[in-house]
Amino acid sequence: MNILLAVDGSEYSARVVEALLTFSARLREMPKVHVLYVHLPIPIGFATRHVAREIVDAYYHEEGLAVVQPVAERLRAAGLDVEQHVRVGSPGETIANAVNDLECDAVWMGTHGRGAVTQALLGSVAARVVALAHRPVTLVR
């Protein structure tokens, strides 16, 4: 079983990690977990006027790894097989695309992200994933 675990560094992401660990302990076979962080894109025209594309890409990668690595380490310590992923894009669509790209059987994610303002601007990422993923989605409060 392949599970996509979408994280953003919020309290809700921490809750999802703990819920997934509790769930996986009950399984006969440990799932492979793909830990994914989706970085919102910086307007490239603006960014590239001031910094090189390589610097922007390095920024995305560093910011994403800062969120993904502690989660991956926690899961590995519990005996799970983990892969780390950082992608850039609209979170709901990017998570749904990653489910297909990584051939995942299910998605686990929190019901809320990093902030109410972001949620209001982007709409509910969780609702978007449920609508687009075509796989079971487990939402944790």
Results as ranks from 00 to 15, higher is better:
H50R: 12
M30I: 15
V16W: 12
Q119L: 08
L40Q: 09
P41R: 07
R15S: 07
A19M: 08
R128N: 00
R76P: 01
F46K: 01
T94H: 10
A120T: 12
M30Y: 09
P31I: 00
Y12D: 12
L40V: 06
A98L: 05
G89S: 10
L132A: 03
E73L: 11
A78F: 09
L139N: 00
A14T: 07
E18Y: 00
A72R: 03
R87I: 00
G115M: 13
A77Y: 14
L4P: 03
V86L: 10
H34E: 03
V117H: 05
I42M: 10
Y12C: 12
L21C: 04
M30W: 02
V88S: 08
G113K: 09
A52Y: 01
D8C: 07
Y60L: 04
S124P: 15
E93K: 06
V67E: 02
L65D: 15
L65C: 07
V17C: 05
E11I: 02
A96S: 14
V71W: 00
S124N: 15
A47W: 15
H50Q: 08
E83W: 00
H39P: 01
E11K: 09
F23S: 09
R135P: 15
A127L: 15
M109I: 10
H134Y: 00
E62A: 13
A106H: 06
Q84M: 10
S90R: 05
G9V: 00
T138L: 01
V107L: 14
Y60Q: 04
P136L: 02
H50I: 14
R49G: 13
A127M: 12
A6Y: 08
R128W: 12
F23A: 07
V88N: 07
P91Y: 00
G9W: 06
V33Q: 13
Y12V: 10
V140E: 11
V16M: 15
P70F: 06
M1A: 13
A106M: 15
L65Q: 15
R114S: 04
R15L: 05
R114K: 04
R76K: 06
G123N: 13
L102G: 08
A131S: 06
L132D: 03
T94C: 06
R128G: 05
L102K: 03
L102S: 11
A47F: 12
T111C: 04
D57S: 05
L5I: 02
E63R: 12
E29A: 05
L121M: 11
L20D: 06
H50S: 09
H134S: 05
N2G: 02
V67N: 03
A131K: 01
A116I: 13
L27A: 07
R76M: 04
Y60T: 02
I95H: 04
L132N: 04
D101G: 08
C104M: 00
S24E: 05
A78S: 03
C104E: 01
H61M: 14
R15I: 03
V117G: 02
L4I: 11
R49F: 01
V86G: 14
A106G: 11
A72M: 06
V137R: 08
V125F: 06
M1V: 02
Q119M: 11
L27M: 13
V99S: 10
R49K: 10
L65H: 08
H50G: 10
A66S: 04
G64I: 00
